[in-house]
Design a protein around this nucleic acid. Sequence first.
DNA 1: CACGTTTTTGACCGCTTGGTAAACTTTACA
DNA 2: TGTAAAGTTTACCAAGCGGTCAAAAACGTG
Lengths: 222, 222
Amino acid sequence: MRAMEVEMTPRAGRTQRRTRIQEAKEELILEAALDVFSANGFRGATVDQIAEAAGMSKPNVLYYFRSKEAVFAALVARVMDIWLDPLRVFDVEKDPASEIRSYIRRKLEMARDFPRESRLFANEVLQGAPNTEAFLKGELKDLVDEKAKVIRAWQAAGKLRKVDPYHLIFSIWATTQHYADFDVQVRAVLGEGLSGEGRFEDAARYLEALFINGLIPGRDGA
Amino acid sequence: MRAMEVEMTPRAGRTQRRTRIQEAKEELILEAALDVFSANGFRGATVDQIAEAAGMSKPNVLYYFRSKEAVFAALVARVMDIWLDPLRVFDVEKDPASEIRSYIRRKLEMARDFPRESRLFANEVLQGAPNTEAFLKGELKDLVDEKAKVIRAWQAAGKLRKVDPYHLIFSIWATTQHYADFDVQVRAVLGEGLSGEGRFEDAARYLEALFINGLIPGRDGA
DNA sequence: CACGTTTTTGACCGCTTGGTAAACTTTACA
DNA sequence: TGTAAAGTTTACCAAGCGGTCAAAAACGTG
């Protein structure tokens, strides 16, 4: 039997740590891949496009990642993390009105500042989440279940209207991510008259009004 | 100069009307294409897949449509029409609460009954709306502008909170279409415990509560 | 500067894809 | 029933694709 020459490939699963250069190059590739995948979807993106966007040749990309799928998987894994982050802060002890308000703000900021990440995720889910099912049913579901309890506690304390907590969360996701995922449509309908910053502030003001009035019991009760 | 044999191809732009058979076959192809495109996106779909789903050979599909793009364009054009429909009914004379309520219902029903159409549209917009820009900036924008006036009239009459009409419409689109476009995610988070019908009713109840409480001034005023 | 290792690339392979050519089959109708 | 048009298919092509290979370039270290 031969000795295994497989280990020649650096990315084939070394125990040894990655060097600075490797980490930098992988970062470069993932950044380029985010551009290409979010703009064209998985099937629409080509390794050549990623390579060109990263300023290197195609085989060089495949030197750091075993396949196109591996690039995508690595990218999705990284994006999922940022994606979950804002939801984690939801805190029972605090005031639901301000918590919801700042959650909307945060998500809206992310739609503005990281539209490619949002679109990548949208694309993935739209195609049936072939790379993400485990994440959705695991980490994501667990976190949402936990936050649903927080919402129910607020409701039990009379601080929040008694609506379904899950659909509440869905509606915040939907409305905020809409501005990243459907950006072209939003621009087309609003016209080019308003700057990005103006659109952002209008959206924030509207969504806060909708959710606060919609969810927080007023003097007239639920 | 030769006479033009181009006209041999039936779909090349006859003045004469399409026959029953042609219409039926085109319908068959578009139905199959809706399946394939909505599940895989434009680049992810192949003419062969469409042909197989339509029960015919690839060249036969290309006999009725000049190219893959032509199939897609025809499909998008048709879907746009259904898509716009629910918004048209918005009526100044009627009560905003019931109008908004029934608009949400209608859009939610469409997300449930025509998820493929919704996903096709989402896919298209997500990719930058290469086939749809004219529609978005034309027909769609015009209709939304018109309905924004209706909303402003309601607001002037004190029947509706004074929020941005455009973002109001966006938020209804976003929340309702979310259930078609992000179906996998919704299912993953909610778990398989609930039937489709149950999910639908929960979503409808929640969204009505959110939008009615959020938009209609209560006894405590705006 | 010599030499083993890591990184990079041009050339290439096999497969899939959108689309075409041409022949065969069915249909419409005189 | 004969025949021209419409409809359908098999075979095929050229281009684009993901991925491999082997050799060259760059790098680190004695």
